[in-house]
Amino acid sequence: MMGYSGYFFREVLTNIRRSPLMSVASVTTVLVLTLILGYFTALMMNLEALAHSLLREVQVVAYLDDDANRVSVAQQLDRIPGVEEAHFVSKETALKKLVERMQGRIKVDDLTRNPLPDSYEVAVDSADSLELVAKRAQRIAGVSYVKYGEEIAQRMLRFNSLVRTVGVVILGLLFLSTVLIVSNTIRLTVFARRKEIEIMQMVGAAEWFIRWPFIMEGVLQGLVGSVVAATLVGGSYSLVVPKLMQTITFLPIVQAEDLLPMLIPALIFNGAFVGGLGSLLSVNKFLKV
């Protein structure tokens, strides 16, 4: 391989010098498609974060018998796998919250006694644990009944997996179309050199020997296009997100420093890969034996 690498490198440079416009076309194609891919991935990640944060809100509430041992219940709740935190809400607090929520339509004075039980609000680590935690909590002595947003949780879970499936499908389609478009663009440069390929085959060049300079050219063009695109995606994301977070405080936006260290290398790698694969596909069209 070492003996050939000089040859390959020379070939690539010569080709780019000879058809700079074609290179610009390939680079631009990768750039635009990587931009789309980048922004779409960012959107997907945010949608998923949103779905997750909505699920966080769902919790298990365990209502206690009047004579229950608070401490013992708390200890047993803590021992259930999946439980992150059990927060005690006394009957007095519960009543206060209720009155607040009803906005004056009931008054504490109207009540001869507080009808609400003490309770624990149990936060779980993931939506998948909700059902199990609820069942185990029900079995604890002193817990009268358990409530959790069953229906909401189910809907959230479905939304979450829908987002994920649709996202993966769209990303897959984007990737495929990128490969096809890039390979079509590169095919023009290969077509311009089909005579050369014919001659190479005629004098006995092995197929991989013919392919490598083209593949390297594709990788290089893919790299240039995707580095520019990744820089644009990264730059705009880190500019826009802090401003969005100030204005839309209720949405859980993924921080730039959480997203970009993963997204940028992935985009660049994808660009190089797509460039190489596109080249390989086009050069194969002209390799006939």
């Binding site: 050369e196 001659i199 006995g204």
Partner: peptide, 24 residues
């Protein structure tokens, strides 16, 4: 086999009416 063809062509020289040289 397909991957043997290049090696055949190193033992069989071919020339054509249109020369088929690399112009650059």
């Amino acid at each position: 086999a397909r991957n043997e063809v290049p090696y055949l062509r190193r033992s069989v020289g071919v020339i054509f009416q249109d020369f088929r040289l690399l112009g650059n």
